[in-house]
């Protein structure tokens, strides 16, 4: 397992005493998730995040910074990081044109076959609990190669065996035009991958401070667990500095409340 490239990049390799600051007691979960999302976007040319997505937005902006200018980022709701001049429909046109490499979807419920429910709990249409609706999911999930499923809540009420309403399916029959789908699932506990042939998630890494048992206890569907599950790689000191000093200010333009909560020092300094 020590030969795994994931483990080889662990920040503990650094001898610089300053790197102790990136130990978990100083690192916020939001910062770890931003780092992890940025890693999942490596190599993309155009990415966008959707509405109400401060952490994915932060991940996109960090990935762009790390790409050295190779990546373009559209943050929905941003004025500075808006790439659209043909109205709100342009994002969907990019997806069908094959230009949009990555997007993010959440879900009130996500099930073991990567089906997503953004509509509600109970019988449709008179749901017991009604959520806002499917947004662009019933389209973007089919057309964006790297859809990252992201939820800040990892519980059995979110990760269910079977969704009550399929806003958008995790997989499609072979005759259905589909160039996109689930690439990864990111939660505050872990990262998962998805095998579309087996229609099943597998555990990729567990975040420091959490355990495989904790993930299994809080997941309502069956997942494949390898014999050795690595810890999620933490951001190194330089990455953490970029997040706190630069990405914090960039994301504050669209998400001031989020930035004030997660990056109070940067916001006060600005």
């Amino acid at each position: 397992m020590n030969s795994s490239p994931v483990v080889a990049r662990a920040p503990q390799q650094r001898s610089d005493p300053v790197s102790d600051l990136s130990a978990p007691d100083d690192l916020r979960t939001e910062e770890l998730l931003i780092t992890l999302i940025a890693r999942l976007l490596e190599g993309c040319r155009l990415v966008s995040c959707g509405a109400s997505s401060p952490i994915p937005g932060g991940g996109c902006l960090l990935a762009r910074q790390q790409s050295g200018g190779a990546m373009q980022v559209n943050v929905l709701g941003s004025r500075v990081n808006n790439l659209m001049t043909n109205g709100g429909v342009e994002l969907f046109d990019w997806a069908a044109q094959g230009r949009l490499d990555a997007f993010f979807l959440g879900g009130g419920q996500i099930d073991g076959q990567a089906n997503i429910n953004l509509v509600g709990v109970g019988d449709y249409p008179q749901a017991k609990i009604r959520w806002p609706g499917s947004f662009g999911s019933a389209y973007l999930y089919y057309l964006v190669p790297r859809v990252i499923l992201f939820r800040e809540e990892h519980t059995r009420r979110v990760f269910v065996e079977k969704v009550d309403f399929v806003s958008t399916p995790g997989t499609s029959d072979p005759e259905v035009y589909r160039t996109g789908g689930p690439h990864a699932l990111v939660s505050p506990l872990c990262q998962m991958g998805f095998d579309k042939d087996r229609k099943k998630f597998h555990l990729v890494s567990v975040h420091p401070g959490h355990t495989v048992e904790e993930v299994l206890d809080n997941t309502g569907f069956e997942i494949d667990v390898p014999d050795q599950v690595p810890e999620t790689v933490l951001p190194d000191r330089a990455t953490l500095d970029i997040i706190r000093q630069q990405i914090s200010l960039e994301i504050a333009e669209t998400y001031p409340r989020f930035a004030a909560k997660v990056f109070p020092d940067a916001m006060n300094a600005a």
Partner: peptide, 13 residues
């Protein structure tokens, strides 16, 4: 015409 939606309950409804 539009891509996507096939197999979803959005379309089924």
């Amino acid at each position: 015409p539009l891509r996507g939606m096939i197999g979803s309950d959005v379309l089924a409804s």
